[in-house]
Design a protein around this nucleic acid. Structure first.
Length: 448
RNA sequence: GGUCCGGUGGCAGAGUGGUGAUGCAGCGGACUGCAAAUCCGUGUAUGUGGGUUCGAUUCCCGCCCGGACCUCCA
């Protein structure tokens, strides 16, 4: 079995992956805060993790994949207040859209998709433990984590408490003992959603829900925790602090996998900059698999600058793979993933390297090598590619009108009326299709 | 300001201490009524100045440029 190697943010180094329990690899991905449509950056994160999960499932008998939904959040509260509706009414649409959009990218659903609203008991228990352990304190109705109580605090993201204070750009709440202390629980006014707690009616802070949900579903220690690299600080630093201090002796996640941010026109795509591309809009102008492929064309730890040109290129590359599969139509995927693909994937998810190997397989398949086609299909499965039949990929459901024009064109060609034949080809092109002639008066249509 | 990452051909994008993958685009050719697809051939690159080395794109240092985090963000 090929050994999987992953870059671990915690150690800032690549290392062979060793599961805590090889019979059940446990992984957690920070999921969406559901108040809006998912954007393309969310998609990169989920697609990359999807490939990791597929790969792990090839390498280990069982993988438990947990991806949470954060449905408690001030932005959600604000929307609910603006619209005069419940938070459930705010989150219901975004959750459905999220599933639809991620499904369109052929990402696998997680095994467990816990919601913050279902884990108040666990959240409260962790906070109580932290207070008991002397890692948290109550102040003016808030419960705060005391960073000074945790000598490990800051190590993960590579910063010192001094740096945190120096870098603080926000007003420091007067009830905080240290500038870096963060909220575990905060009071809710009557007009805001709230839950009963030993500290009064309130709501959890931002980071605690992930500590609670990963604990509930994966245990105190688990294998892999993923997310975008903008979450390293403060989100993941705080998750580690909360979980490790609540459960002395535990180490929380073993390996931390962070993908780099997606850029648009050379700038980070973010909600605060307002330059984010809504995934749903991108999916409207390109096939989901092309979007997926685009997101794996560069290594997950390097920046990816999105452009329409890149999206077109991604689609063209997939065309070639589908053409190779088309020449061996109906072929079954090989039982084994070709080593030329598996090796780069196992080397810290080197998807561009794997794609290069895919091209070599496609070349061989186009030259008539059926085993290469079977290997291509197997390799595609672990990367979440080739989900459609070649006919679906190229043409989808061809309108009858286009079919009729193509049939008429074949008739014209039979009669050697090439002027008419070319006119019909132009008409077909105007409807968005390209017609390719095959042997013996056959043709193929594809979307142009 | 502090911390960190990166600069590879027209574009996208890997690897590697020893003549620089892969794709897209381009060019020439085969095939085709013409195309499309496919096949064959083909040009162009390691930001910059030093250092280490028999040899550096790869390691080290300076410089320039770009990006990220330090605040809600995947």
């Amino acid at each position: 079995m090929t050994q999987l190697t992953l870059y671990n943010t915690r150690t800032r180094a690549k290392a062979p992956f060793t599961p805590l329990d090889a019979s059940n690899v446990r992984a957690y991905l920070c999921g969406p805060t559901v108040y809006d449509r998912a954007h393309l950056g969310n998609a990169r994160n989920v697609v990359i993790f999807d490939i990791l999960i597929r790969l792990l499932r090839r390498l280990y008998p069982r993988v438990t994949y947990v991806r949470n939904i954060t449905d408690i959040d001030d932005k959600i509260n604000n929307r609910a207040k603006e619209r005069g509706v419940s938070i459930e009414q705010v989150t219901e649409g975004p959750i459905r859209w999220y599933h639809e959009d991620m499904g369109a990218l052929f990402t696998l659903p997680p095994d467990i998709e816990p919601r913050a609203t279902d884990h108040l008991a666990e959240i409260i228990e962790i906070i109580e433990r932290l207070i008991q352990n002397g890692h948290a304190y109550v102040a003016e109705g808030h419960v705060l984590f005391s960073v000074a109580s945790d000598k490990e605090y800051g190590k993960f993201s590579g910063r010192t408490p001094d740096e945190l204070i120096a870098g603080a750009r926000v007003d420091i709440a007067p009830y905080k003992r240290d500038a870096g202390d963060f909220v575990l629980w905060k009071p809710s006014t009557p007009d805001l959603p709230g839950w009963p707690s030993p500290w009064g009616r309130g709501r959890p802070g931002w980071h605690i829900e992930c500590s609670a949900m990963s604990w509930k579903h994966l245990g105190q220690d688990f294998d892999i925790h993923g997310g975008g690299d903008d979450l390293i600080f403060p989100h993941h630093e705080n998750e580690i602090a909360q979980s490790c201090c609540a459960f002395p002796g535990s180490h929380f996640a073993n390996v931390w996998v962070h993908n780099r941010m997606l850029l648009v026109n050379g700038e980070k795509m973010s909600k605060s900059l307002g330059n984010f591309l809504v995934l749903h809009d991108v999916l409207a102008k390109a096939p989901g698999e092309a979007v997926r492929f685009l997101l794996m064309r560069s290594h997950y730890r390097s920046t990816l600058d999105f452009s329409d040109a890149a999206l077109i290129e991604a689609r063209k590359e997939l065309d070639r793979f589908y053409r190779a599969l088309e020449t061996h139509s109906g072929i079954e995927a090989a039982a084994e993933i070709p080593a030329s693909v598996l090796e780069p994937l196992c080397d810290d998810l080197n998807t561009p390297g794997a794609i290069a190997a895919l091209h070599a397989l496609a070349d061989a398949a186009l030259a008539g090598d059926a085993s290469a086609a079977a290997g291509l299909k197997a390799a595609g499965a672990v990367m979440g590619l080739f989900n459609l039949s070649p006919a679906q990929w190229f043409a989808g459901d061809v309108p009858a009108e286009v079919r009729a024009l193509a049939d008429a064109r074949i008739a014209a060609r039979k009669a050697r009326d090439f002027a008419q034949s070319d006119r019909l080809r132009d008409e077909i092109a105007a409807l968005g299709y390209t017609v390719e002639d095959g042997p013996n008066q056959t043709y193929k249509l594809r979307k142009s």
